Amino acid sequence: MTKAIDLLKTSVVLLFVGVALTACERRAADDTTSQSSGAQSARLESAGSSSRSDSGSEASSTLQRAERAVDDSVLTTKAKSALLADTTVKGSEVNVETNKGVVTLSGAVENERQRERVASIVRGIDGVKSVENKMTLKK
Rank of each mutant, 00 (worst) to 15 (best):
N99G: 01
A108W: 00
K3G: 14
D54Q: 07
N111Q: 01
R52G: 06
V89E: 04
L21C: 11
D126I: 09
G91H: 06
R113H: 08
E93P: 08
S50G: 12
E67L: 10
Q35I: 05
R26Y: 10
V74W: 02
L84A: 12
Q35Y: 10
T33W: 00
K138W: 04
T87C: 13
T22G: 08
Q35P: 00
A69N: 07
T33F: 08
A28L: 13
L63Y: 05
R43G: 13
S51R: 09
Q40I: 11
T10H: 11
S120M: 06
A23L: 14
L83K: 02
D86I: 00
V109N: 09
Q64M: 15
S53L: 04
S106C: 04
E25L: 13
K129N: 11
K134S: 11
A29T: 14
V70I: 00
D72P: 13
A108L: 07
A42F: 11
S37W: 06
T104E: 09
G48T: 07
V74M: 04
A69V: 02
V118W: 01
G91C: 04
D30K: 03
R43E: 01
E45Y: 07
F16D: 15
D72L: 05
V128K: 03
S130D: 01
D6S: 07
T136K: 12
R26F: 06
Q64E: 13
V131C: 07
A82H: 06
